[in-house]
């Protein structure tokens, strides 16, 4: 097994295992901290894919922003003396059936005796020469300021609108 494969399987195992903890843990705090490891695992896979800028962005925005925001959400939606922070589960069996079915439809490796391979093995992906691992930050910056300027500006307006909307929604109204 090459070094690349070893690192890939390490990060894939971290990602999938902590993702399972996020979904299955009884306590909300456990879920939130398992989500931290999922984000780290995905960032490691990004590095392995040669996306250095995106891996740093993933850590900064997901771990530094979204995860902290989710922890605030956990804390603010429970009473202070409510220490165990349980999250109840409903419809567990139908959920398991849907999730397992999704995995099988997408990634089933069964080839024998019936050809039941998942969609990702049946599809003819447009695999090309690929991009050799190289620094991406400068190129991404030039693309954002050049060819993708309009979506870039639209994304900044979206962030402004979301900021103002979130503040509007949680504001305590005097008349209500």
């Amino acid at each position: 097994m090459s070094a690349e494969a070893a690192v890939f399987y390490l990060f894939a195992a971290v990602t999938v295992a902590s993702g399972a903890v996020v979904v299955l843990a009884r306590s909300l705090i456990y879920s939130a901290f398992a989500l931290l490891f999922t984000f780290f695992g995905v960032a490691g896979l990004y590095v392995l894919l040669g996306a250095d800028f995106l891996a740093a962005t993933q850590l900064l925005i997901y771990v530094g922003g979204i995860l902290v925001l989710l922890l605030f959400g956990v804390m603010l939606t429970h009473k202070l003396y409510d220490l165990d922070l349980r999250s109840e589960v409903t419809q567990f069996l139908p959920g398991i059936i849907v999730a397992t079915g999704l995995i099988l439809i997408l990634a089933s490796p069964v080839r024998w005796p019936l050809d039941l391979r998942g969609l990702m093995f049946r599809t003819q992906w447009a695999v090309g020469a690929g991009r050799p691992p190289a620094a991406t930050t400068a190129e991404i910056g030039q693309l954002f300021m050049g060819r993708y300027l309009l979506p870039f500006e639209a994304a900044s307006i979206l962030l402004l609108v979301a900021l103002m909307g979130a503040a509007m929604i949680v504001r305590r109204r005097k008349d209500a």
Partner: peptide
């Protein structure tokens, strides 16, 4: 394959959790 498993786990979280913040974690997955 990793992505498909992660997607299915997130779907499981969205479908089975009652707590809204936990559902949001599923969406993030």
């Amino acid at each position: 394959a990793v992505s498909a498993v992660l997607f299915s786990l997130g779907m499981l979280g969205i479908l089975t959790r009652r707590n809204a913040v936990n559902v949001l974690m599923g969406v993030e997955l």
